[in-house]
Design a protein around this nucleic acid. Structure first.
Lengths: 117, 117
DNA sequence: ACAGATGACTCGGAATACGATATAACGATA
DNA sequence: TATCGTTATATCGTATTCCGAGTCATCTGT
């Protein structure tokens, strides 16, 4: 893979969900919380503490930066965040890592759970 | 899904890799470290601190328990760990969660990366 | 006007990560 | 048998991260 990305990996569940949410389009904090809950069907809920800790760290590492408010938005409170190019590459790398994990698990769990014999 | 499993989710990267390793067959601590490094092609390295912290917590939660030494093993130092039934179900649930994440990411990252226009 | 949802953010205790370190048994070899 | 590198378990202490409770302000509908 790409060795320069490995210091960022593996992403914690919180960081992964945040980056994934921002991969679609820039979003504001509260929206990220809702979107993460929606994507996981309520199974994983991100509180404000975890969210802003992670956002700050992601910005320090330059995986995320702040975006200008879209013209379509009239709520002045919102602050928008977006993926940087580096952030996108890190996300892709971690997704590839997870694909390998899922594939590995697929064979192991199938072998251990034969439908009949 | 299964609501009784959600308190265990999401698994941290370390816990996920440990459970995945044990899904194949019971294994001892040092072997888990090597296997995790091998499975991730050296990208993710699990140190002893993280390993034993996690093993202890996984045993407290009864996702893992200690297994008797296999007869084929003559090294008396080794302590073997294995998945409990609950551990296997939690692992399966988390893998299903990750499948959803990977699928979601697939469409998002493809949409954001059109080959031409 | 009021209530409830939306929105950004801080705080501090609890939990977790993780390298450095300790200890010792094993295997091979000189 | 002395020695060396590897295998193996485990702890310790600091750093980092998690994460709910709480604060404050704004928006939206009635």
């Amino acid at each position: 893979m790409n060795d320069e990305l490995t210091p960022f990996l593996p992403l914690s569940p919180a960081a992964l969900h945040i980056l994934l949410c921002l991969a679609a389009e820039p979003c504001h904090g509260y929206g990220i919380m809702q979107e993460v809950a929606r994507q996981s069907e309520g199974q994983y809920r991100l509180g404000p503490g975890t969210l802003y800790d992670n956002l700050q760290k992601l910005m320090d590492r330059e995986l995320v930066d702040e975006a200008p408010c879209p013209a379509s938005d009239d709520d002045s409170r919102r602050r928008y965040y977006r993926l940087t190019k580096l952030g996108r590459r890190v996300l892709e790398a971690d997704i590839n890592r997870l694909k390998r994990v899922v594939r590995e698990a697929g064979s192991l769990l199938r072998l251990a759970h034969p439908k009949r014999a």
